[in-house]
Design a protein around this nucleic acid. Structure first.
Length: 684
RNA sequence: GGUCCGGUAGCUCAGUUGGUUAGAGCAGGGGACUCAUAAUCCCUUGGUCGGGGGUUCGAGUCCCUCCCGGACUACCA
């Protein structure tokens, strides 16, 4: 088999939120594929990076009163730790804000300019004068111009379905500041993608780079009519790279994000003294992108167009996967099924999820479902009951003697499993890991009866049959080792443990072709604990109490989903209608927490000092001890009831109330005003 | 509405270019074993392959039609 050179990427996670189980579908699928290629002896490099630019990052950094650089550095460190703990091995993990990316963006830009693809057009956009920013559609809400429904998103009405531009909204409001935005005109640069129409038609429809349903989708939705110009610039302020020949304007995040694939490769090449062009300008190198179906459009139209224009290699294959559902539904915070990578790791081992995803994923774009009870049953049955059990039930009988010197008669089991290696490899190669797992477990199903029939536990009773015992265990352990090799891309930790047990590390797929003989056998230790239902439940419970970033959209990563249940409303039905005057009797004010401390004797209370600005302060006792640490409160803005009658409490006078939602205990959520609010402002 | 994907045993799914009595794993029932993480092994109950038409000597597999479920439906792309 000729040695292939492969460059593999996963989509870049947006640096505005933590990695969750939905993200991991992609990174685990890719990691498994990469590990498979490496195990086959190919040179395969896995590149990724954080996607760091765009309005959402800028806004969040402002809200948190820190620089974008600080925010994205912290997020990147968290992402890398999460990936690392899941056994996802990148060859390089960069950032789209790295210097290499700027250089490559500029060079890409020059090529696109030189090709005559760029035009400037004026567009009208809503502008928030308070925050000094142009507003993307999702930052505007207002009344639908068609059906008059209030408080609708900036692009279409959730009530009547009408689509419109934010400027058409009646009484538009900026969600950043609450201000009424004004319409302003600004020049934007556009890429005339239509000039590449013929190329894209040919590339998407006749090549082998796309799954057939994706090619159909593109033909039906985009290629059947002229391609629209792509708005590629954003006026300041914007967090990104400034466009060199268009000062005051920045590349839209979706321009520089995929170039991050190149930049990450560049970093790796620099560190390893390798030639960049061997990867991105060589017909000998395969380029494989793994992405989710939500970002199909960018990767199958714009990205090939950019690459071709700048003279880079085109993707060999774009592997597109579906979304994750949990228990058959979208991930839901209230159900505790919106699980962060870190939360999972707090309760469960990564191998469980790696195997479960592998057993579900195929080369199709279908969504996959993580049914938690199926997850428990499948992992325990397949991995512990069938696979690990083979070693667990035979290793200790040969810990003193080691494996036999020649391979015993086994009824053709080893040879059959060796032959099956090709079919398993084909399945991995095609990203059909569910098929691969099925084939592997079929082998395990034939291995256990062998042990059953040969009864090593009886053989060991008879010293005269020691050789027989050794032979039976040699077969069982070699069958186990074959499975460990075939599973190594999915379960690298178990493969390593198998290597330790048999004193022969697993480094190549072809090791499954020849039995291992004559090596010592180490003392057997449990390789994988069974999944306990209580741990899964604990993970779900913890997920219910966690904060989820309110807006994880805005970058190139739109994988977040939500599904708001009706439990909260049902638990506390709406109160009777009140008049405007009634409402205005309650004086809600923005306040800043300037001091926060524990009250030694109090079980539920924290003592807060609120500032209303201008030196006006209030002492408030709030029942939020179980939900917040004093340190995390100091400095943040909250909303307080400023005209509530003071109340004498056991520990002192409470001069107001901080508003929060939630059932109580550790589930209390303080309300925060958006950036721009200042202490003392009244809430209307 | 349009496009795409799917509808096979209680559950998750396999079923290659149409070919003998439709399969696996799990779950359920019965038994065995005790080396192994209440693991394993043997036997076993479950299906008019969404409905209806058609092509064919023969269809889960091809064609038509209807029903059901899901995804997508860009234009901040």
């Amino acid at each position: 088999m000729p040695r292939r050179r492969l460059l593999v990427t996963s989509a870049l996670p947006y640096a505005n939120g933590p990695i969750h189980l939905g993200h991991l579908v992609e990174y685990l699928q890719t990691d498994i594929w990469v590990r498979f290629q490496k195990l086959r002896g190919h040179e395969c490099r896995y590149m990724c990076a954080d996607d760091t630019h765009g309005t959402a990052i800028m806004i969040r950094a402002r809200q948190e009163n820190r620089s974008e650089a600080e925010l994205i550095a912290q997020t990147q460190a968290e992402h890398i730790q999460d990936f690392d703990d899941f056994g996802i091995e990148f060859d390089n993990y960069g950032s789209t804000n790295d210097a290499e990316n700027r250089v490559l963006c500029e060079s890409m830009w020059q090529s696109i300019r030189a090709a005559g693809l760029v035009v400037e057009k004026d567009i009208e956009q809503l502008y928030d004068t308070e925050t000094g920013t142009f507003l993307a559609d999702r930052f505007v809400r207002g009344t639908c111009p068609k059906c008059q429904s209030p408080d609708q998103p900036g692009d279409n009405c959730s009530s009547c379905g009408q689509t419109y531009t934010p400027a058409e909204l009646i009484d538009p409001v900026s969600t950043l500041s609450g201000a009424q935005p004004e319409v302003r005109t600004a020049g934007h640069l556009f890429i005339e993608l239509e000039q590449l129409h013929a190329f894209l038609e040919q590339w998407t429809q006749t090549g082998t780079s796309l799954q057939p349903e994706i090619a159909n989708y593109l033909q039906g939705h985009f290629l059947s009519e002229p391609l629209r110009d792509w708005d590629i610039s954003r006026p300041a302020p914007y967090f990104g790279f400034e466009i060199p020949d268009f000062p005051g304007n920045y590349w839209y995040v979706w321009f520089d994000a995929p170039i991050g694939y190149l930049a990450s490769t560049q970093q790796w090449c620099d560190q390893h003294n390798r030639a960049f062009d061997d990867w991105w300008r060589s017909p000998d190198c395969e380029i494989h992108h793994f992405i989710g179906k939500d970002i199909t459009y960018f990767h199958t139209l714009f990205w090939p167009g950019m690459l071709r224009t700048a003279g880079y290699s085109l993707p060999t294959k774009i592997h597109i996967h579906g979304f994750l559902t949990v228990n058959g539904q979208k991930m839901s915070k209230s159900k505790g099924t919106f699980v962060k990578a870190r939360t999972y790791l707090n309760h469960l081992q990564p191998g469980y999820l790696r195997y479960f995803y592998a057993s579900k994923l195929s080369s199709k774009v279908d969504d996959i479902d993580l049914a938690l009870d199926e997850f428990i049953a499948k992992v325990n049955t397949d991995l512990v009951g069938k696979f690990v059990n083979l070693a667990s039930r035979s290793a200790k009988f040969v810990s003193h003697s080691g494996l036999s010197a020649s391979y015993p008669e086994d009824g053709g089991l080893f040879a059959a499993a060796a032959t099956a290696g090709d079919a398993i490899a084909e399945a991995y190669e095609a990203c059909d890991t569910s098929r691969a797992m099925r084939l592997i477990m079929g082998l395990a199903d034939r291995a256990n009866p062998y042990v059953e029939e040969n009864k090593p536990w009886e053989l060991r009773q008879d010293p005269d049959r020691a050789a027989e015992l050794q032979d039976v265990c040699t077969v069982a352990l070699n069958l186990f080792r074959q499975l460990a090799i075939y599973l190594a891309p999915v379960l690298p930790d178990l493969a390593a443990q198998a290597g330790v047990l048999l004193h022969d590390s697993i480094t190549h797929w072809d090791q499954a072709q020849r039995p291992l003989l004559g090596t010592p056998v180490a003392k057997f230790r449990h390789m994988l604990q069974r999944v306990a239902e209580k741990d899964v439940q604990a993970m779900v419970e913890e997920s219910k109490t966690e904060e989820i970033p309110a807006n994880s959209e805005g970058g190139t990563d739109n994988a977040a989903t939500w599904d708001d249940g009706g439990e909260a409303l049902a638990a506390e039905p709406l109160a009777a209608e009140c008049s405007w005057d009634d409402f205005m009797q309650v004086d809600l004010r923005v306040a800043r927490i300037v001091e926060a401390e524990h009250v030694a004797e109090a079980r539920k209370l924290l003592k807060l000092k609120l500032s209303l600005g201008g030196g006006h302060t209030r002492q408030v006792f709030a029942g939020i001890k179980a939900a917040y640490e004093p340190e995390q409160l100091v400095g943040r803005l909250v909303v307080c009831v400023a005209n509530l009658a003071p109340r004498q409490m056991k520990f002192g006078l409470s001069e107001g109330m901080v508003v929060a939602s939630g059932p109580g205990g550790s589930e209390v959520y303080l309300l925060s005003p958006d950036a721009g609010a200042v202490p003392g402002q009244r809430v209307h």
